[in-house]
Amino acid sequence: MNKIIKTIYSFWSTSIAIEMEYRFNIIIEILSLSGNLIGSLFTLSLFYGPNTNLGGWSWPSSLVVLGIYTILDGFTISILQPNLSRIVRHVQNGTLDFVLLKPIYSQLWVSLRLFSPWGIPSVFVGMILILFGIYYNNLIINFQTIICFLTMLFSSLLILYSLWFLIASTSIWFVKVWNANEVLRSTLVAGRYPIYSYPSLLRRLFTFILPIAFLTTVPAEALLNISSPSWITASVFVSFSFLNITIWFWRYALRFYTSASS
């Protein structure tokens, strides 16, 4: 375990050093973050009139959902996107060979090799949105709530990672699947709003087939003290089964890897 932490530390410090060469990016990231934030807040505000709300959720509660979505977005920019987009390229160029030869578990390497610092501002902004939500809701946060919320957030990060990883690893068969991740990203936008704002058909789709409900709504409920134990157990269960599926799937997929070019 210690060895893994040390390896990840050196992985990330080198990739941060590389990214620092493109300091101009920070301007684009900040512009894109603030543009998206203003746009999402604006769109969200359209649903709130004097007598209307979104799926029975108050404005501050919706802010919590949006905040969690923004944190997940930061996680995507920092870890999922830089790493998992590379799997496709490794397969295409046959350089996955070198990864498999390294004395480290290959799934860990392909998932955590790179770290892009450009997602950090999103994580901060997400936290600020959540704090606003808590403040305006007049919530009293106790220790138990925080533990519960962090567990749910961790589960949602695991689910998000698993979804990305499963799609990226299908590139072993289909090679060009980068677009599939675009599909995923565009569908996950649905997580900006509480799951209760969707009609029942979509709600079921987003709970049982594409677990968007577990990504943002369930952690938000945990923080707002309105979640039921069954949702919490379900979330933990879903995230762990997803993680196990990715481990199994990666091993299975590697059996079909034919190593282009060598």
């Binding site: 009139g49 209307t52 709300n53 979104l54 675009e182 599909v183 565009s186 936008v189 979509l202």
Partner: peptide
Amino acid sequence: LWAISGMLPLIMLGIWRESGISL
């Protein structure tokens, strides 16, 4: 896949139909 990724208006349709603000 590109075509499917253009689903956003359909997702928004779901929200707008459910939301009371449309009334």
